[in-house]
């Protein structure tokens, strides 16, 4: 198997020709609170996310999207159930191991407050690599900077960047270590529609051109339409999915959920 520059180490398919799974949730339950006030944010969710695929998680507010993402990304521990990142089970791991996995194998783009205010854009991008003591791949780095149009912004601090630029820096940071999965939680929630479209375009390009795996939480049907697949959540349970979504099919599906 030849690896091109920018190509992920894993192909999309296994040797048997079946789609590979980047991350998998099995019977995930997450309960907040105790006794009478207990809320099951996730109530038995099993779902697979394929390698080199762009998956959107959708659902009404409070349906458990963020909770699912936190559990998948090792930011939170589920009450019950399993998360497998490649071959690694995340649910029983101690904090130090989870930290290392987040650092080396997972990338994040958050809705807001993505960047550390005292670091330059470049330092922010390289942060996860430096924390792990890894050398950045210069060629990959310059590819990312070119594609994201950050060339003249690298020495700026976040306060000197627009919201869209900040989000693009966050995307570069998520991608620079070639993680197995990039998680994005409402990455366009705080952006105007043009900047939002740019960021979503980059995420899709990273999937198409570089074979990146992306899981994105959103409640915006337009954003979801950039994905290859949409997974619907309602009341902490899986409520169907769409392949090759368009804004219209997504809206339809959402309306059905609401009904």
């Amino acid at each position: 198997m030849s690896i091109q520059t920018g190509e992920l180490p894993l192909g999309r398919l296994t040797q048997d020709g079946l789609p590979r799974t980047a991350i998998r949730a099995h019977e995930l339950r997450k309960v907040y609170g105790q006794g009478d006030t207990a809320v099951a944010a996730l109530d038995g969710v099993s779902v697979d996310f394929g390698v080199g695929r762009f998956t959107a998680i959708m659902g009404p507010s409070g349906s458990g999207k963020s909770t699912l993402m936190h559990c998948l990304a090792g930011l939170d521990t589920p009450t019950d159930g399993q998360v497998l990142l490649g071959e690694t089970g995340l649910t029983r791991l101690p904090d130090a191991d989870l930290t290392r996995i987040r650092r080396d194998r997972i990338g994040f783009v958050f809705q807001s407050f993505n960047l550390l205010p005292m670091l330059t854009a470049k330092d922010n991008i390289l942060l996860p690599l430096e924390l792990g003591g890894r050398k950045p791949d210069q060629q990959w780095m310059s590819t990312l900077v070119d594609v994201l149009g950050l060339g003249d912004r690298l020495t700026h601090r976040p306060s000197e960047l627009s919201g869209g630029q900040q989000q693009r820096v966050a995307v570069a940071r998520a991608l620079v270590g070639r993680p197995e999965v990039v998680f994005a939680d409402e990455p366009t929630g705080n952006l105007d529609s043009r900047s939002g479209a740019e960021v979503l375009g980059f995420l899709r390009r990273s999937v198409r051109e570089f074979g990146q795996t992306v899981v994105m939480v959103t409640h915006d049907p337009l954003a979801a339409a950039y994905a290859d697949r949409v997974v619907m959540l309602a009341d902490g349970k899986l409520a169907g999915e769409l392949l090759e979504p368009t804004p219209e099919t997504v809206l339809d599906a959402l309306r059905q959920l609401g009904a």
Binding site: D95, T99, R102, F108, F110, P128, L131
Partner: peptide, 9 residues
């Protein structure tokens, strides 16, 4: 954020 990025305790 730093913790999410992989800074250990």
């Amino acid at each position: 954020l730093l913790r999410a990025m992989g800074l250990t305790r």
